[in-house]
Amino acid sequence: MAGRGRGSGVLALCVALLVGCGGPSAPDAAPGDVRRLLDRRAEAVLDRDAAAYRATGRPAEAYGNLRDLPLASWGYRLTAFDRDGARATATAELRYRIKGYDREPLSTTRTLSLRERDGQWYVAAERPAKKATEQLWDQGPVTSVRGDHSLVLGVGRGDRATAELRAYADLADRAVPSVRDAWRGKWPGQVVVLVPKSLDGMAGLLGAPASGYQGIAAVTTGEAGGSGQAPADRIIVNPEAYGVLGAFGKQVVITHETTHVATRAHTSRATPLWLSEGFADWVGYRGTGRTAAQAAPELRRAVQEERLPAALPEDGDFGFSGDSGKLAQAYEGAWLACRMIADQWGEERLTAFYEAVGDHKKRPGAVEDALRDVLDLSPEEFTARWRTYLRAEFG
Rank of each mutant, 00 (worst) to 15 (best):
R387W: 01
A26L: 14
S268H: 15
P27F: 12
D170Y: 03
A30L: 04
H260K: 09
A208R: 11
D200Y: 14
E257R: 00
R36L: 13
R180I: 03
Q120E: 15
P70G: 04
V176M: 11
R363P: 11
V193K: 00
S113F: 04
R166S: 12
L17C: 11
H260M: 02
R174F: 04
C338G: 02
R174Y: 06
H260Y: 00
Q229I: 03
D118Q: 10
A60P: 04
P105G: 04
S276K: 11
M1C: 03
G319C: 01
V45E: 09
Q190I: 00
A29T: 15
A182Y: 05
V357I: 09
T79E: 12
G319Y: 08
R391P: 00
R339N: 15
R117V: 05
R103G: 15
W137I: 04
R174H: 15
Q135R: 15
T263H: 01
L312Q: 14
R48I: 13
R286Q: 13
R180W: 06
S227W: 07
S107A: 13
A163T: 09
D170I: 03
G3I: 06
R160S: 10
C21G: 09
K326D: 04
G9W: 08
D233F: 06
A175F: 03
A132S: 15
G23E: 10
D373T: 12
L350V: 00
T258F: 09
R264A: 08
D102V: 08
E93G: 01
G215S: 07
A247P: 04
R77V: 13
A90L: 11
A241H: 12
G316K: 09
V252P: 00
A241Y: 02
V34E: 02
G204K: 14
V303T: 06
A92D: 07
Y213R: 08
P27G: 05
D359E: 13
Q251G: 13
A55F: 07
S178Y: 05
G100Y: 14
A330E: 00
P177Y: 03
K197Y: 05
N238H: 06
R4W: 04
T108N: 14
L245T: 01
R385E: 09
Q304R: 15
A175E: 02
F248A: 15
A16N: 00
Y213P: 02
D233Y: 08
V219D: 07
L69Y: 10
R87S: 14
L69E: 06
D28V: 13
A80Y: 04
P231D: 01
A124H: 07
V176T: 09
A92H: 01
E240P: 06
A44P: 15
R234V: 05
A132H: 09
G365D: 13
D317F: 04
L38S: 07
V45N: 08
A42V: 13
R349F: 05
G57T: 01
A342R: 10
D102W: 12
W121C: 02
A163S: 11
V191W: 03
G358F: 10
F81M: 06
Q251C: 02
A384M: 10
V252D: 06
G289H: 12
L194E: 11
R95W: 02
R363S: 11
R67M: 12
A295K: 10
A241I: 06
Y63P: 12
D315E: 13
A302I: 01
L205D: 03
G333V: 04
A51R: 14
V261L: 02
G100V: 06
A42E: 13
T221I: 13
V219Q: 03
G284H: 02
Q139M: 10
E348Y: 10
E314W: 10
P313T: 09
V142G: 02
F248K: 09
V374T: 13
